[in-house]
Design a protein around this nucleic acid. Structure first.
Lengths: 238, 238
DNA sequence: AGCAAACTTTGCGCTGACGCAAAGAACTCC
DNA sequence: GGAGTTCTTTGCGTCAGCGCAAAGTTTGCT
């Protein structure tokens, strides 16, 4: 869909980009060099689809910087966010779950930077690189767990608890410590939160307003800061 | 937890048990013989936990006969059904998603029969048996897709649509053609259906009564037969 | 600076689905 | 065969959260 930049337009990628990331951490410099030389690097604006649900899974990606929202779009045009992926994780790994096309759309939540490789290299990576397969399946497992938890939450909890849980998950996964609390590290609207918790932006807005009055959170346009995580935990477990 | 029967109490297992099942279908008789000789066979009554959420994943299973419900239990004791597994599929494959313990409980929905192997054989199976890994990851992928669909459904659909969808999924996966419709092939209560669709048994009962009046379904105690699948499809897609 | 677009807040009425309650039907086990 | 258990149905009152509407706020664009 979008044409990757020619590799030559970018400075040679440095080994340190990958060497500390779990799927590659057991590899030596030489192996990482080979991997990097096969990679395409690209910057994405915020709000762009890296790949689309249903499209043939031609490449897999390593998110180096930014945040990605994995969304599914229903026949009636509603969006449902399945998960958020922070920098340092693989995405578009359809092959790891035996799929030939992407099962969901990956949208950048912020400006992002990702490496990608053609999918035909996948089997080689799995076979040749120690730890790559293991870490990949762990990633799949973590995402399965998260989806599982979402199902349980949606099945058993009220809207208020679901929103509280979603906020807690977001600050755990992508929180940034600031002066008087923890802030979600990417722009997130009431609409986004509602798509993550199966409710409406109105209800999310009302909840955040109420919580702000009680001093548990502070928010401005596209930014949410949690000041009292413990109070949220209490709320989420009623 | 439950002690498997000693292998010697059962007649020698026949190769035809496995030879047509996807994870083993590319193997020759000799390989299947080796696999069977390492397997433990066991019968389970209906309503029994084959393994429990959180327990160390010591064995993996192939369901030969019956149906298994994969459930999660919340801190408040509510059950949520994640998926149903029909005969012919692997279960308890925590290793395939990088887990050392089972992420959910597997309960038999009917009397069932399963083979199992100690988990330490897993890596050998993946390495030695052609197609085993591929088929396993496909199974994982299918389950991920199904969970994904459940999330989207729960996020966007009304109770009526969710129940209709659940019924359609059940007759697709586990339906048995009978005289004037398709019947779900295992006993399923209103309560079970409500745990699958995040609602109450009362609401499910009301819906089924209404649908029965319209001739779309017929049901008796623990049995549901869909007479007009197309009408359900229409209902589910409003 | 000024306009447009995107995001947020808040009020109000409505209703789908739940909670509770109670009775009826089917099956199981002595 | 009868007592107990499990499953199902149905009625009724209630309310959480949605839909709609409209106004306010922030940001970006020209």
């Amino acid at each position: 869909m979008d044409k990757p930049l020619a590799k030559s337009t970018l400075p040679r990628l440095d080994e340190s980009l990958l060497s500390h990331l779990p799927p590659f951490s057991r590899l030596d410099r030489r192996q990482i060099r080979v991997i990097l030389d096969q990679a395409t690097s690209r910057r994405y604006d915020a709000g762009i689809a890296i790949f689309d649900e249903g499209a043939p899974a031609e490449r897999f990606y390593m998110l180096l910087d930014g945040y990605v929202r994995v969304v599914r779009i229903t026949s009636t045009g509603e969006q449902v966010t399945a998960l958020h992926i922070p920098a340092g994780q693989l995405l578009g790994i359809a092959k790891a779950i035996g799929k030939a096309s992407y099962p969901a759309t990956a949208m950048t939540a912020t400006e992002s930077l990702a490496l990608s490789w053609p999918m035909h290299l996948w089997d080689g990576f799995v076979a040749d690189y120690d730890g790559f397969a293991t870490e990949t399946y762990k990633t799949v497992g973590d995402r399965v767990s998260e989806m599982n938890n979402r199902i349980v939450e949606m099945a058993t909890q009220q809207v208020e608890q679901r929103v509280a849980n979603a906020l807690l998950r977001l600050i755990n996964q992508t929180g940034r410590k600031v002066s008087d609390g923890i802030e979600i590290d990417f722009p997130i609207t009431r609409q986004d939160l509602s798509e993550l918790t199966a409710t409406t932006l109105h209800t999310v807005s009302r909840l955040l307003s109420a919580w702000e009055k009680q001093g548990m959170v502070q928010s401005k346009r596209k930014r949410i800061k949690v000041c009292d995580p413990h109070a949220l935990v209490v709320l989420s477990q009623i």
